[in-house]
């Protein structure tokens, strides 16, 4: 029983981890609390359903949903960070909240607010190891998510784009002086981080087979909690935070009830913010006003 919950928690945590990584990329590199992340998550998940409904094959539907989310993320870049950087960090935050409401309600206008069930391309496939049942899609998600985070780390550490991103994270002005084309690097960062959470949306819809225009809100809030717990700006912090929040959620459901999950998770978030706002692996300087 405990082993089963451990596995379920980790598989759910993989989704939170992806969202938390997305948040933490925006925050750690650009000091931007990007609230369009829940909407990009939803676009990934919901549009997969919508495109399948239109009769597209699975792979095409997923790729199409990711493409739309990627374009959406680039639009967010153009209308928030590109023109508002250097000012108070609250301004892009507020704009991104505008995008959250915009994207969610555009989907709502077209498809309505009902939750839709999405069939699984994997059927009911699952694997049994002793007492523990592993859903194939969930397991695939966990593996893919962890693989992607390693890929991302490798990209940040080794590639030219990674070096560019890290220098922008230090200071956009210094990066410009060093010859980094900020207006090329930052859209790619938006693309990368946007795809991360959109893919999390796809994974969520395939694993849990339910989509709605507001599916991103609760998941992304937990992703935020995961980011804060791990330490804002730290990718590995987001990974640990995501998995921990997933585990806490599953164990809270069995120990208390599903209704108590939000009290436990957000209570923990509040406690971390009060007691140790830098989280487990965070950088104390981020998010505070610079002198």
């Amino acid at each position: 029983m405990v082993a089963q919950q451990l596995v379920n928690g980790l598989m759910l945590g993989a989704i939170y981890m992806m969202v938390a990584v997305s948040f933490t990329l925006f925050f750690g590199c650009l000091n931007f609390l990007n609230f369009s992340v829940p909407a990009l998550f939803m676009l990934g998940g919901f549009l997969t359903w919508a495109f399948v409904q239109m009769g597209m094959p699975w792979v095409v539907a997923v790729l199409g949903a990711l493409a739309v989310a990627a374009v959406a993320s680039l639009i967010v870049e153009r209308l928030t960070w590109r023109i508002q950087r250097g000012g108070p960090p609250l301004i892009p935050l507020v704009s991104s909240l505008g995008f959250l409401i915009l994207f969610e309600n555009l989907v709502l206008v077209r498809w309505g607010s009902d939750a839709r069930s999405i069939p699984s391309p994997f059927g009911d496939a699952n694997i049994r190891i002793g007492e523990v049942v592993l859903g194939v899609p969930q397991l695939a998600c966990l593996v893919v998510a962890i693989g992607l985070v390693f890929g991302l780390q490798f990209l940040l550490a080794r590639s030219k784009l990674g070096r560019g991103i890290r220098s922008v994270a230090e200071s956009p002005e210094t990066a410009t002086i060093l010859g980094v084309e900020v207006n090329k690097v930052v859209p790619r960062l938006f693309l990368l981080a946007g795809l991360f959470c959109a893919l999390a949306g796809v994974m969520f819809s395939l694993s849990y087979q339910l989509v709605s225009p507001f599916m991103g809100d609760q998941v992304a809030l937990k992703g935020l909690a995961a980011m804060v717990l791990g330490g804002m700006g730290s990718v590995w912090g987001a990974v640990i935070g995501g998995l921990v929040i997933g585990l806490i959620e599953i164990f809270a459901i069995s120990a208390l009830s599903a209704d108590h999950v939000s009290v436990v998770v957000y209570g923990l978030l509040l406690a971390v913010l009060i007691v140790r706002p830098t989280g487990l692996f965070g950088d104390a300087g981020l998010g505070q006003q610079k002198l």
Partner: peptide
């Protein structure tokens, strides 16, 4: 804790 942390809290 100031700034963006308050929004989260």
């Amino acid at each position: 804790t100031r700034g963006l942390y308050l929004a989260l809290a």
